[in-house]
Design a binder for these strands. Structure first.
Length: 479
RNA sequence: CGGGGCGUGGCUCAGUUUGGUAGAGCGUUCGGUUAGGGACCGAGAGGUCGCAAGUUCGAAUCUUGUCGCCCCGACCA
């Protein structure tokens, strides 16, 4: 067995420099390339295929709940953006403006959508008149632009891929139900498919979406203990409806404002996939999201029959419903192994002359590197079993890491010590006062992540000011 | 927007202190040998040194300006 370092010489080890490790993995797995516009990334086939799988599987889940897809404009007139006060204040600092069409200066400048609440409001105003028109549960897949100061592939880019759902309902209850329903869709998807455990809860007023009455979030913990907000669902009440005049005639013949929601999940979750599951050899993809689940690697492929056998195995595995490729490139086997590992392909099948003599193949699991010699007659069953075990154990491992890195603090000294010296989240009681939130951020650079739905009383007083506690809340350093 | 770093073949970089007309490794192309953890030999292709102005007989190197990127902080999915 060769020295391990040879396998990964191109990737900076996580422990040495986590940020550099992340960048290396993104590049070596060929997920993206940088474009000539700062913060705009070009998603390459390996990266886009992951996003395609996310879109397909999430979209299917949306549609089961009655979501309909639409396509909305890229541009928003300044006047439209400005209709909701909190919203425009929140987004104005980071929008890109179009001032010219061809050579003509525009009478009114247009912003490139940073999010599309205002556009959906414009649409709903024109198509909702009666309670019979409700609810409207629309979603769009697309990109938006936010002029970020600093950018990193997937985690924070100027233009990013996402979906944004926007709904209008007759009652506050219906809107709130939808808000929570979509948060649960996100949580289930991220946990079941991406194998990333999340904490569900509500954002504080300080952290909530510009224009929302309440924001709910799923928070994931990266390998370095930092938080990544991985999906959000907002309850708007009638704020936008009042600003945009979206009213309907109810059964009682009264004119009423609609109650709205919006919810979004972005390609940022690919960053979470990398930072939750990746290791020093590169990406590790959960089988359910991997664009290629099995790579068949022929050994000594020039020898008669080897390539043919590899293709035959691919056929068998495909017939069993798996996504399979054969690496028939003119590289050495060692190269191909490393390549498969960097790209995070869950299982590889090694097939060479020695195996063929014995009607067997070697199958290797990406996350644990567990090797198994299996009879070709039972190949598909064994590979499937391995994929299932991997999916399951990846989630369990991540969950174990998440919960073992959440610590309770009752006093402020304890809190500061934990934030400074331990990776992960800290759980405390909080008085609900924004002043304490600001002080904590000032003192420790940690921000509130969420107030979990399952509330407990772990102390009677706020960890910061000592006043009576109102909420159990998670804190952490965030991406 | 503050702090730090960096712009030289596709990539990573050396050369800049002391000015003399551009180099290495990797990749790539062709030919051959190899093959169970990043194989090897031989031959080739590929660069107005980020951009602009200046100093000089002569600038990758010195001066001034400018643009861009990366990393760390303040804000966001």
């Amino acid at each position: 067995m060769a020295k391990d370092k040879k396998l990964v010489e191109a990737i900076t080890p996580m422990d040495v420099d986590f940020a550099q490790w992340y960048t290396d993995v993104v590049k070596k797995a060929e997920l993206v390339s940088y474009s000539s516009v700062k913060g705009c990334m070009m998603m390459r086939p390996a990266g886009y295929a992951i996003w395609e799988n996310i879109m397909q599987q999430l979209d299917a889940r949306f549609k089961e709940t009655g979501v309909e897809n639409v396509g909305m404009p890229l541009f928003i007139p300044e006047s439209l953006l400005q209709k909701e006060k909190d919203h425009v204040e929140g987004f104005a600092p980071e929008v890109a403006w179009v001032t010219h069409g061809g050579n003509e200066k525009l009478e009114e400048r247009l912003c490139v959508r940073p999010t599309s609440e205002t556009l959906f409001c414009e649409l709903y105003k024109s198509i909702v008149g009666s309670y019979r028109d409700l609810p409207k549960v629309y979603n769009q897949w697309g990109t938006v632009v936010r002029w970020e100061k600093t950018t990193r592939p997937f985690l924070r880019t100027t233009e990013f891929w996402w979906q944004e759902g926007h709904t209008a309902h007759a009652t506050a209850e219906d809107a709130m139900d939808r808000t929570i329903q979509m948060l649960n869709v996100y949580a289930d998807f991220v946990q079941d498919v991406l194998a990333i455990p999340v904490l569900k809860g509500q954002k504080t007023d300080k952290e909530k979406f510009a224009g929302a009455e309440a924001t709910y979030t799923i928070e994931a913990m990266m390998h370095d203990g930092k938080a990544l907000q991985s999906g959000t669902s907002h309850y708007f009440g009638t704020g936008f409806a009042e600003a945009f005049g979206i009213q309907y005639s109810d059964k009682d013949n009264q004119l009423k404002y609609v109650h709205q929601t919006s919810w979004g999940l972005s390609a940022r979750v690919i960053g979470a996939l990398i930072m939750v599951h990746g290791d020093d050899s590169g990406l590790v993809l959960p089988p359910r999201i991997a664009p290629t689940q099995v790579m068949v690697i022929p050994i000594a492929q020039h020898k008669p029959g080897v390539l043919e056998k590899a293709e035959e195995l691919k056929g068998i595995l495909k017939a069993a419903g798996l996504k399979v490729k054969v690496d028939d490139s003119d590289k050495s086997p060692g190269w191909k192994f490393s390549e498969q590992e960097m790209r995070g392909i869950p299982v590889r099948v090694e097939i060479g002359p020695k195996d063929m003599e014995q009607n067997q193949a070697v199958i290797v699991r990406r996350d644990t590197r567990e090797k198994k010699i299996v009879s070709l007659d039972a190949l598909a069953e064994n590979v499937k079993e391995m994929l299932d075990a991997m999916q399951h154990e990846m989630f369990e491992r991540a969950k174990e890491r998440l919960y073992s890195n959440i610590r309770d603090a009752k006093t402020y000294d304890e809190f500061k010590d934990l934030i400074a010296n331990k990776p992960g989240f800290v759980r405390t009681m909080w008085c609900g006062d924004q002043a304490c939130e600001m002080k904590i951020k000032e003192d420790t650079s940690a921000t509130s992540r969420c107030m979990p739905f399952e509330q407990e009383q772990i102390s009677d007083v706020c960890v910061c000011c000592g006043k009576p506690a109102k909420k159990l809340i998670y804190w952490g350093k965030a991406y």
